[in-house]
Design a protein around this nucleic acid. Structure first.
Length: 339
DNA sequence: GAGACGTGGTT
DNA sequence: TAACCAAGTCT
């Protein structure tokens, strides 16, 4: 068993020299702490999302809505449009619900403890711990994919994910301490992101190499072990680019639950092996090609049809539609507009 | 516990 | 190129 306190000291030293500079991060070692609102917003945006993808959204959101109270006052449709392209749209719906809960139930001030944070919409075990630690400097066991990977290597855990999750969390808990509780998870995540990477880890640069059981095995990259995932099915569908006399696009608001919930979309058929061609209005539809898109649990070929007509739709200029649609529909609309 | 839930970059 | 992967949460 590696010596926990020397590993901890070694990683914090490394962090002092190598911490990343990020838009939501106070200068490391400055003793400054980031506004809880910004910590929370960044943590939600970073769920299953890379730093380069989330960063511009974070900059736009904080410029437009500097406080959680500002965010709480936003119209649902504006928030969803601002989130377009970032994915996992339930996050956006929960983000707004959480901002409104903080505004109405907590006087516009984020709660400073893990339990109260956990009760907020869209805040799970990871985010509650991260905000408690990073924004409030509370000792909290912050366990994300990076931490799981680092722990699985450090201790050469042979149990595959996801079954190994409780064990990895227990191991991570060994490092939680009153000393620099806010820096610790960030150091761990920076290490996981830049050194202890999923593939080809840079063990020669790693401050924890001296105590790493995984490295001793000679195959650190083998960790964490994972059980095979089911194959991703392929579906087909039809999407309809409907234009009125003014050239606007007819969109529909999707139901809150389910795929792309709460977002605007193009009218479509069902998505299945053999979709039924069911146009939103009777029109002279012409085919404009197809687009491919990959979701987490299925891939999709969408055949795009263009036509003119009127009806009960959310009529939107092409530019606004392109900016507010989720990516799958943005791609379909671009295809339709290109002819 | 397992599946739903997006997107874009990397290998 | 297909597969894998990213600071997860909810049901």
């Amino acid at each position: 068993m590696p010596d926990v306190s020397s590993l901890r000291a070694a990683l914090l030293d490394w962090y002092d020299a190598h911490a990343r500079s990020l838009p939501w991060r106070a200068p490391p070692g400055s003793g400054m702490r980031t506004d809880p609102y910004r910590v929370w917003l960044s943590e939600v945006m970073l769920q299953q999302t890379t730093v380069p993808h989330a960063a511009p959204y974070f900059e736009r959101f904080t410029a437009r809505w500097p406080t959680v109270s500002n965010l709480a006052a936003v119209e649902d449709s504006d928030l969803m449009a601002a989130w377009a392209g970032l994915g996992y749209y339930a996050r956006a719906r929960n983000l707004l619900a959480c901002a409104r809960a903080v505004a109405s139930e907590h006087g516009g001030v984020f709660p400073d403890n893990e339990a109260a944070l956990l009760a907020l919409p869209g805040v799970g075990a990871y985010t509650a711990a991260a905000v408690a630690a990073i924004a409030f400097d509370r000792p909290a066991n912050v366990v994300d994919g990076n931490v799981e990977r680092v722990m699985s290597r450090l201790f050469a855990v042979e149990t595959p994910l996801p079954a190994a999750r409780p064990e990895l969390k227990r191991l991570a808990a060994l490092f939680v301490s009153d000393e620099r509780p806010g820096d610790w998870p960030q150091a761990l995540m920076d290490l996981g992101s830049g050194v202890c990477r999923p593939k080809s880890p840079s063990c020669e640069l790693c401050p924890l190499a001296f105590g790493c059981e995984g490295l001793k095995t000679g195959e650190p990259a083998r960790y964490p072990l994972k059980t095979k995932k089911a194959e991703r099915p392929h579906r087909h569908g039809h999407a309809f680019v409907l234009r009125d006399a003014a050239g606007r696009i007819g969109l529909v608001r999707r139901p809150d639950k389910g795929l792309l919930g709460g977002m605007l979309g193009l009218p479509t058929s069902d998505w299945s092996a053999t979709p039924v061609f069911h146009a939103p209005v009777v029109a002279d539809w012409s085919e404009a090609g197809a687009v491919e898109h990959v979701f987490t649990h299925f891939s999709l070929t969408l055949t795009v049809h263009v036509g003119a007509g009127e009806g009960d739709f959310v009529w939107t200029s092409a530019d606004e539609a392109l900016a507010s649609l989720p990516t799958v529909f943005r791609k379909a609309l671009e295809r339709g507009l290109a002819g």
